[in-house]
């Protein structure tokens, strides 16, 4: 029942939204009441389509996932559509809010710049910093776990530091390590260290007493029980930290660039283009950052699915 209905809404949606967008670009700022009626029709159709998609119950889990993805995708596309219709229809000055089409054009027109910024910020600063910070946090957690005195001292400190605005060290790091990517990587290392430390220590405590006793009754050494039991049991916690850190790392590197950079980098581009009021370029950088962040996050989620396949949260699905 709902599937034909959904298809009907989808066709309606595609037809009207195209119509609206073409009309909006031909008569930017001078659209009439009919235009807004159409926009509202599209909006309602999209809402009905998502809700009918969400109600779909499909036995095949792959198809079900695709239907869920579609519901989410249509919601996002509707937001983009409304953004475009409103900015073009009301002729909002692009200094305030450029329409998505202008942002898309900015991306297409300045690919070399975006690529250079991407390499400077993400490849040179974020990724090395993220790896170093996570590795250092992980190793410290292993040591802290081995030495109870250290653990009791470090964990309260780690918890406390995790709540602090660590991003504030950015100006200091820029002074110490210079304007180039080294200082940004240093900020990323500091920002990612503590979440990893705290989460890994918590994860190493996740294996139950029963399981540990079993390992002891097997006569397993410390290393054997670490690698066979406690690290696998800690995997969900470690991946949680990796995911939190992937967002933190991006933020850290971009914000650190506000304090001084060579003339390349995403944070540099954002702050200079804001100064020149070319907001479409700013949004283009943000789109790149968001895309990189989401891909990184999605990749981590896939790796986790592969590495921690035995975990109840994956087995249930």
């Amino acid at each position: 029942m709902t599937l034909p209905l959904a298809l009907f809404f989808a066709v309606l949606l595609g037809f009207f939204s195209l119509e609206v967008l073409i009309h909006a670009h031909d008569h930017a700022g001078a659209v009439g009441g009919l235009f807004w009626t159409l926009v509202i029709v599209v909006w309602i159709a999209a809402g009905l389509l998502t809700s009918s998609l969400a109600k779909l119950k499909i036995l095949n889990p792959t198809l079900q996932r695709i239907a869920d993805l579609c519901a989410a995708a249509i919601f996002g596309l509707t937001l983009l559509f409304l953004w475009e219709a409103v900015t073009v229809g009301f002729a909002v000055p692009s200094v305030l809010m450029p329409p998505p089409s202008a942002i898309g054009a900015a991306i297409a027109n300045s690919l070399p710049i975006l690529q250079a910024d991407f390499v400077q910020t993400i490849v040179k600063a974020v990724i090395p910093g993220w790896i170093m910070g996570c590795a250092a946090g992980f190793l410290t957690a292993i040591i802290a776990d081995r030495v109870p005195f250290l653990r009791r001292g470090l964990i309260p400190i780690g918890n406390f530091v995790s709540a602090l605005p660590i991003i504030g060290v950015a100006p200091i790091m820029v002074m110490w390590f210079g304007f180039d990517w080294h200082s940004k990587a240093a900020v990323v290392v500091i920002m990612t260290f503590f979440p990893m430390l705290v989460n890994t220590v918590a994860g190493l405590a996740a294996a139950s007493h029963l399981e540990r006793d079993l390992m002891r009754s097997y006569g397993a050494s410390y290393l054997q029980s670490l690698f066979r039991l406690r690290l696998p049991a800690a995997l969900p916690f470690i991946f949680n930290a990796l995911k939190i850190n992937s967002t933190l790392a991006l933020v850290g590197a971009i914000v650190a660039e506000f304090f001084g950079t060579p003339i390349v980098g995403m944070g540099f581009r954002i702050s200079t283009e804001v100064g020149r009021m070319s907001l479409d370029m700013v949004w283009a950088e943000i789109a790149v950052a968001a895309l990189a962040g989401s891909l990184f996050y999605g990749l981590l989620a896939q790796v986790e699915r592969f590495a921690a396949f035995w975990h109840p949260s994956y087995r249930a699905k």
């Binding site: 998502t50 809700s51 109600k55 989410a72 992937s246 967002t247 954002i270 700013v282 943000i286 989401s294």
Partner: peptide
């Protein structure tokens, strides 16, 4: 609202992979 759980929730989560602080100047 069940529809929102499937359509809005993924975007709320995705919104956090955007470095929000980068939008601060805008």
């Amino acid at each position: 609202v069940r529809a929102l759980q499937k359509s809005l929730l993924p975007w709320i989560i995705a919104s956090q992979t955007i470095p929000i602080l980068a939008i601060a100047p805008i």
